[in-house]
Design a protein around this nucleic acid. Structure first.
Length: 311
DNA sequence: CGAGTTTGACCAGCGC
DNA sequence: GCGCTGGTCAAACTCG
C-alpha cells in the first residue's frame, strides 16, 4: 500500500533560512567582514537545511515502514479471519470447558454461523461451547467495539444509533471501571444486549460488547446522525489490535470532523474503496501524531537541539 | 405520570 | 459445599 503519495511528510519548521538570506541580501552592506559573516552564516544554514532534509527523509522512511507493517498485519488478519470462519465447530469440540467470561483471554464467542458474514464477524473461540445447556440454539452473535471518547467523559454512553435501556451496572474484578448492561429498547422483542466498560489500559476508550442480532431495522437508518458507529446490523467488529481474540474496531469520538457516507462503513468490510481506506487511515495517523503533545515536544526538542548544537 | 436510571439483592456457573 | 464472580432483576428514585 502506498501511503507516501497521499502524505506530505515535509516538515515546515520555520527553519527555512532562505527567507532570512533574501532579506539580508537587500540590505546594503559594504564592509567585507560583514559579508564574510553572512557567508559563514549561509554555510551554516545550508548545512542545517541538509540536516533537516536528512531527518525528514528518515521520518519518511520510518513512516513508509510503518505503513508496510500495517499492510502486512492487515493482510494477516484478513487471512486469519477468512480461515477461522470455517473452524469454529472443531475448535469448540476440542476445547476445554471454561467459565463464561471474556476477561481472561479477551476472546468472545460467536457460536452462530456468522450470518453477518464477511470479514467483520470473526473470532472463533473455544470457550462457552459446553456450558449453559438450556441456552437457546440460536446463541447471540457477539461483537465488540472500541470507542475513544474524551478522557474527562465518565459516562458509559456509546452512541450507535440504537435505543438502549440500562438494566444493571457492576464493578468487575479485573477492571475498576464499572460495567454497564444495556438492552435494546427500540423493539420490545429485540434480544440484543450491550455491555459497556472502560478499557483498563486506556480510560479514554470505552469497550462496548454487543450480544445478539437486532430483529428490527436501524432506528436512525434515515438520519445522518449516529451513522458513524453503525456498521451494519450489529456494529461491525474487526480489529488489528488483537490477533487471536475478538475482532474489534476502535473509533475516535473525540473528533467532530464530519465524515462522508463512505466512511460510515468499516474500512475492513471489504467493500470500501482502497483509496478511501488509505486516506482515512492517513488522516487518523496524522491526527493522532499532531494531537500527541509528547510527540510534538519530542520533535521540538530534537529540532531545537540541532539549532543549539550549531551555535 | 411514564420512561429511564440506579443500586442492592438474588441467581447461576465455576474453581477449589 | 462454599465462596467468588458475572449477569440479571426489580424496587426506589430521577427527570422531562
Amino acid at each position: 500500500m502506498e501511503f507516501n503519495g497521499l502524505l506530505n511528510t515535509s516538515l515546515d519548521l520555520n527553519a527555512n533560512p532562505l527567507r532570512i538570506l533574501d532579506e539580508e541580501a537587500l540590505l546594503p552592506k559594504q564592509e567585507s567582514d560583514i559579508k564574510a559573516a553572512v557567508k559563514q552564516e549561509r554555510g551554516a544554514l545550508m548545512e542545517e537545511i541538509n540536516r533537516v532534509s536528512a531527518e525528514n527523509k528518515k521520518l519518511k522512511e520510518m513512516l513508509s515502514v510503518m505503513c508496510e507493517d500495517y499492510t502486512d498485519l492487515r493482510n494477516q488478519l484478513m487471512e486469519y479471519t477468512s480461515k477461522n470462519l470455517g473452524l469454529d465447530d472443531h475448535d469448540q469440540k476440542t476445547a476445554p470447558r471454561k467459565r463464561k467470561s471474556e476477561s481472561s483471554t479477551g476472546n468472545i464467542v460467536d457460536r452462530t454461523n456468522n450470518a453477518n458474514g464477511g470479514p467483520c464477524e470473526s473470532s472463533s473461540s473455544d470457550e462457552d461451547s459446553f456450558k449453559k445447556p438450556k441456552e437457546e440454539q440460536v446463541k447471540a452473535k457477539i461483537s465488540r467495539v472500541h470507542v475513544r471518547t474524551e478522557a474527562s467523559d465518565r459516562t458509559l454512553i456509546v452512541k450507535d444509533g440504537y435505543q438502549w435501556r440500562k438494566y444493571g451496572q457492576k464493578v468487575t474484578r479485573d477492571n475498576p471501571s464499572p460495567r454497564a448492561y444495556f438492552k435494546c429498547s427500540f423493539a420490545p422483542t429485540c434480544p440484543v444486549k450491550k455491555k459497556v466498560q472502560r478499557s483498563i489500559e486506556d480510560q479514554s476508550i470505552v469497550v462496548a460488547t454487543y450480544e445478539g442480532e437486532h430483529n428490527h431495522p436501524h432506528p436512525s437508518a434515515n438520519s445522518s446522525s449516529n451513522k458513524r458507529l453503525t456498521l451494519g446490523n450489529v456494529p461491525c467488529s474487526s480489529s488489528l489490535s488483537s490477533s487471536c481474540g475478538p475482532t474489534t474496531i476502535t473509533l475516535d469520538l473525540t473528533k467532530q470532523k464530519p465524515i462522508s457516507p463512505q466512511e460510515t462503513r468499516h474500512p475492513l468490510s471489504g467493500k470500501v474503496e482502497a483509496s478511501e481506506l488509505q486516506q482515512y487511515l492517513v488522516e487518523q495517523m496524522a491526527s493522532t501524531l499532531t494531537k500527541d503533545p509528547s510527540f510534538k515536544a519530542a520533535l521540538a526538542a530534537a529540532v531545537s537541539g540541532k539549532f543549539i548544537q550549531q551555535k
